[in-house]
Design a protein around this nucleic acid. Structure first.
Length: 467
DNA sequence: CTATGGCACGGATT
DNA sequence: AATCCGTGCCATAG
């Protein structure tokens, strides 16, 4: 049944036909840039379609469809609640964040396809900062990251191979390490942690001796021998625990894990380009409250309409073209309606999603709540497949600038994984996988021994006899 | 001999 | 219908 009729659209949506439904689904499946392409081609083909130029906000430069003032600039000021502010942006600003317009300029020919995304992503950030003659070097370095974002080759080798002084190699590496997955391109987890710690120390306060702890006691930390660690550093056991807690909460020994780990199998739809995100989430900067601003890119939403002149002209259409024109007009009307519907669904979906995962967005991975598409579908009175399509192939940019696939918001095994992590943190004696499995069973998580092992490695925790 | 990681199969999820 | 994920079995490392 057509449950979705019940929802209240922004503007009145006329009754849905099957064609309507089918096309809405098709549109929903596309992400912002794909939709952009699709509509552009439709525009050039179909004379019945017309683009309203919209209005450009004189403050932020955004385009918005209707009269009144720019929703982006006015809403945040009036907002008081913790409700996220959601609005739709009809235009994609390509390369808006970095100003790096065309990636083709950068030599990435040696990149292995699976990791292309990560390499591109990093390259895009650092490209403006490195001199042109070092770009090849950077590309080579990025091509030799492993799936965890760590460098697999020695700087000395690179220097020799490219016939450049090692200092230049090192300065490029430094740049890479400070790019978004902070610590990416480090030769080892230890170095990655150190970099992250340093970057982090500029914004928040870090526990004393944390740096020393990583430098000298890296293996002690990973083996969870805290009393040893405390002895070496001359600090209390309690303090050692605090340091460990800080590290495991804020740092990531494998920079690329989590963000890019799930894209790694190499079957990305559009492998050549790193597409701009479909939604951008930012914190309200102007106001004193901390509500979230959510910008959804939905190309031409509200701008695309049926050309009224065409509608009139159809009366006087030449005999042989009248059927053609009629079908053009129908298609145009359908497309406009479906686009409206798509936007509407996206807004509702994202709104709900943001509310549920608010903590995750603000505080990071640790606060991700378990969620399945089926659950969300029930809440929104939509069909599961609708959610699936809406989520598929889309990405979101978080306030901290990270870009993640929207599917990351849905994870059913995450609560079990955190439970597992806390169990390992709590227990003093190294527990074997089967023992952990038993403990998890007590907490209500029915998982097999084999699964525990998998989660462990997902979290980057060493096997029990090595801790 | 026990704990772990690899491969592969079946059921759940999308 | 395609894909992902948990799980069982088996080889291997400790």
């Amino acid at each position: 049944m057509l449950q979705s009729q019940r929802l209240l659209p922004l503007t009145q949506v006329r009754p849905m036909t099957t064609a309507h439904l089918a096309q809405t689904m098709a549109l929903l499946f596309l992400n912002a840039s794909e939709l952009d392409q699709k509509i552009e081609s439709e525009l050039s083909r179909n004379p019945a379609l017309e683009v309203d130029p919209g209005k450009r906000c004189h403050i932020c430069g955004r385009i918005y469809p209707h009269k009144g003032s720019c929703p982006f600039c006015t809403n945040p000021k009036t907002a008081t609640s913790e409700e996220p502010i959601i609005f739709v942006s009809p235009i994609i600003y390509k390369g808006q964040q970095t100003g790096a317009s065309s990636i083709e300029d950068y030599p990435l020919d040696e990149v292995t396809p699976e990791y292309e995304d990560l390499s591109m992503y990093v390259m895009r950030q650092i490209a403006p900062e490195i001199p042109a003659e070092d770009r090849k070097l950077a590309a080579y370095l990025l091509a030799n990251l492993d799936e965890d974002g760590l460098l697999t080759i020695e700087p000395v080798e690179i220097a020799r191979y490219h016939h450049v002084p090692i200092s230049r190699v090192e300065s490029v590496i430094r740049l890479i390490q400070h790019a978004d997955p902070v610590g990416v391109g480090s030769p080892s987890p230890k170095d990655a942690l150190l970099i992250q710690l340093k970057v982090l120390s500029e914004s928040i306060s870090i526990p004393e001796k944390a740096q020393e702890a990583i430098e000298v006691g890296m293996d002690l930390i990973s083996r969870r021998q805290f009393s040893q660690l405390a002895k070496i550093l001359g600090i209390s056991h309690q303090h050692a625990l605090e340091i460990h807690d800080f590290i495991s909460r804020n740092l990531n020994p494998f920079p690329a894990r989590g963000n890019w780990g799930d894209v790694r199998s190499g079957k990305v739809k559009n492998p050549s380009v790193f597409t701009s995100p479909d939604i951008v989430i930012s914190k309200s900067s102007s106001a004193n409250n901390d509500c979230l601003l959510v910008e959804i890119y939905s190309p031409y939403s509200g701008l695309l309409k049926v050309n009224p002149l065409f509608r009139q002209a159809i009366q006087q259409a030449p005999e042989e073209k009248t059927t053609q024109w009629k079908s053009d007009l129908e298609q145009a009307e359908l497309l406009v309606k479906c686009l409206q519907q798509r936007t509407n669904t996206m807004v509702r979906l994202i709104g709900r999603l943001i509310k549920i995962q608010r903590e995750f967005i603000l505080n990071g991975d640790a606060d991700l709540k378990p969620l399945t598409r089926a659950f969300l579908a029930k809440e929104l009175n939509l069909h599961e497949s609708t959610i699936s399509r809406a989520v598929a192939n889309k990405t979101a940019q978080l306030p901290d600038g990270k870009i993640i696939p929207l599917s990351k918001f849905f994870d059913r095994s995450l609560n079990i994984r955190t439970a597992l992590r806390t169990i390992i943190e709590k227990e003093t004696r190294p527990l074997s996988d089967s023992e952990i499995a038993a403990l998890l069973k007590c907490q209500g998580f029915n998982v097999a021994r084999r699964t525990v092992a998998k989660y462990r490695s997902m979290e980057g925790i060493l096997p029990s006899h090595q801790r």
